[in-house]
Design a protein around this nucleic acid. Structure first.
Lengths: 347, 347
DNA sequence: CCGAAAATTTAAAACGATTTGGCTGTCTGC
DNA sequence: GCAGACAGCCAAATCGTTTTAAATTTTCGG
């Protein structure tokens, strides 16, 4: 059913019908209501592509999926969908092809100039992220999920990674731990940096010297968690606590601790960051895992919301949101075992 | 840059330019080459939305993401992207909103009639899947990732779940196991059914009676793996081997086995199905996990390919692909411990 | 060289909506 | 009773392509 035909059946002009459906004020309330009802009854819905052509809008938000099919994406997108459900806006996923080899920024500029999306969401930004400059230059609206230090104005939504890790580390210090290892995300990413800073600040505040041998960076995989944890535990003296970047990594850490005949929560304390996935929960681990928690799904929903605001004209410079992170203590954290306790110089 | 302008610069008509770029035969090779080169040089690219309007194509394939933000989606979509990279086709993700409550089939019919996608991919089908009938009725091309028993003709790509589990179970029987537990996917889904069948056939072939108390169904989460495995191990006599539906579930099983003071690979054998994720690999588990393996990424790539064939006219009834599954033996499987060995009546 | 057939190229008509600018009739204030 | 404001509706232009049908040019056998 086309607009023309539908309008004729109503005895109205296409103009009036179009306006009625779009909620323009130039149409009487009575007419608007009638049009809306008939549209449902007769099943008229504007052709998306015609609308897109004439309005110049794409009706979609672009999301670029990282190189390794990162497992958290589904959760974030579910959140986006929650918010976008009522709007007439799609989520367009552009995964970076594994073998592609093509320059990543080329992918972004192609996406931006393709006219397929009205806005883009950037993930895992770096302090100096060229994607931000690129999209700004191209005039494509975008939201950064995370933060960057660039001068280019940009909208962002981030969680307080620095604060989260600072509190986690402080808590471990409160429990008497002095050698605390940290398994962080990939080096160079802003959130990894912030977490590093949180870790160092906590140590500093308590006068504990920073030991670079206790910090590792890498992808959030079970395997790296295992390897890093093992190599830390081989040091002498070994750390008595771990601050870990993800649930998947924590799995590897648990495994490594066990492989040394040690017990998590008694010999070794662990706090991990939890993005809240339905298929892997901190409460169910044995022992249950203390976490810094922030829902990725909620972030997705709010991201969609902020992008909509951006598209309706709110200036990017106004859109900055920093979410606090909960620290949830469970069984994986406990006081430092006595034999390992090192006198606290500051105490 | 618009077509009209671009054509003028070349001294050609819009028609010729359009045809040259679309590779129609009515244009001389010389002209085609010149047009292609100039298009790159001057940066001309057809407006997507205009093309979509006039051709009636959406230029996108729809994927509906399950209710729980299933973690495997990213991997599958990465595969799709690999294939779609060269084509001018997008991936449109429609996650089912958590709270939405709306009828799922309504979501599909909205997607199908929205004109936003040229084809849809259906995941986790059931033997009688109403989505299949629905899309067929609506005339929307679709590919089923998995299989269904419906009479409605449909294209599908599936892995040999039945054969995979049959071989896995047979292998465990060869090792002397007689009480073999099975943690399967959600009840009612075709792939779960096929796996059940594979399991029962393997038992049947060796004259081992089927015990329904050794089979469980549910989401592929770490938690359910743990709970099911524990409840199995509490039976007497307990099973000596597990066939497990996913890597995430296997994590829970390992945990449960340990919680009983038992050792995987010695006291309890485990074989799990592995969809091959970069962040959780069977080789790195301790002990390394024997798996039935099939790359979800490869399935994604092939799915995209098949959808393209579908769109270019190949009849859906011709498109049926059943992939074999590898059985890879690692350390998690071993002979049944002597004390538990039960005489094989068939032997 | 001619004329028909083949090879190129083109003008103009879609595709299905939104939106600009204009038109009609009713209401308001004086 | 009238000018002006205003509410409500409409005709036609527009978005940027593809494609149909027709026109032009080239090729080639006789």
């Amino acid at each position: 059913m086309k607009l023309k035909e539908f309008a004729k059946q109503l005895g109205l002009s296409p103009t009036t019908v179009s306006r009625a459906l779009s909620g323009y004020p130039e149409v009487s309330e009575k007419t608007r209501k009638r049009v809306a009802e008939e549209a449902v009854r007769l099943g008229y819905r504007p052709n998306v592509n015609a609308v897109r052509l004439v309005t110049g809008r794409a009706g979609a938000i672009g999301v670029v999926m990282g190189r390794n099919g990162e497992f958290q994406f589904s959760e974030y997108m579910s959140g986006m969908a929650e918010r976008l459900d009522s709007e007439d806006i799609d989520i367009l996923v552009t995964p970076i092809a594994e073998q592609g080899g093509k320059d990543e920024s080329q992918l972004y500029s192609r996406l931006a100039t393709s006219g397929r999306v009205d806005a883009v969401i950037i993930h895992s930004p770096m302090p100096k992220d060229e994607r931000i400059a690129l999209l700004h230059r191209l005039g494509m609206p975008f939201l950064v999920h995370g933060r960057s230090e660039t001068d280019v104005p940009h909208a962002w939504l981030d969680i307080d990674n620095e604060g989260a890790v600072r509190r986690a580390t402080s808590h471990l210090i409160d429990l008497g731990h002095r050698r605390i290892a940290m398994i962080n995300g990939r080096a160079g990413l802003t959130f990894s940096l912030h977490r590093d800073q949180g870790y160092r600040k906590a140590l500093e505040q308590r006068g504990i010297p920073f030991d670079p041998r206790l910090v590792a960076h890498g992808h959030f995989t079970d395997e790296l968690g295992f390897r890093f944890a093992r190599s830390f535990l081989e040091q002498s003296p070994p750390p008595t606590a771990f601050v870990v970047g993800s649930m998947m990594t924590a799995l590897g850490v648990y495994r490594a601790v066990r492989s040394f005949g040690l017990v998590v929560g008694r010999d070794i304390s662990v706090i991990a960051h939890d993005d809240v996935f339905p298929y892997l929960t901190a409460d169910n681990m044995v022992p249950s895992l203390s976490t810094t928690r922030s829902s990725l799904r909620a972030a997705g929903a709010r991201s969609a919301d902020l992008v909509l605001q951006l598209l309706s004209g709110r200036p990017a410079t106004e859109i900055h949101e920093l979410w606090p992170v909960e620290l949830i203590l469970r069984e994986s954290t406990g006081p430092v075992p006595h034999s390992d306790a090192i006198p606290d110089k500051a105490g």
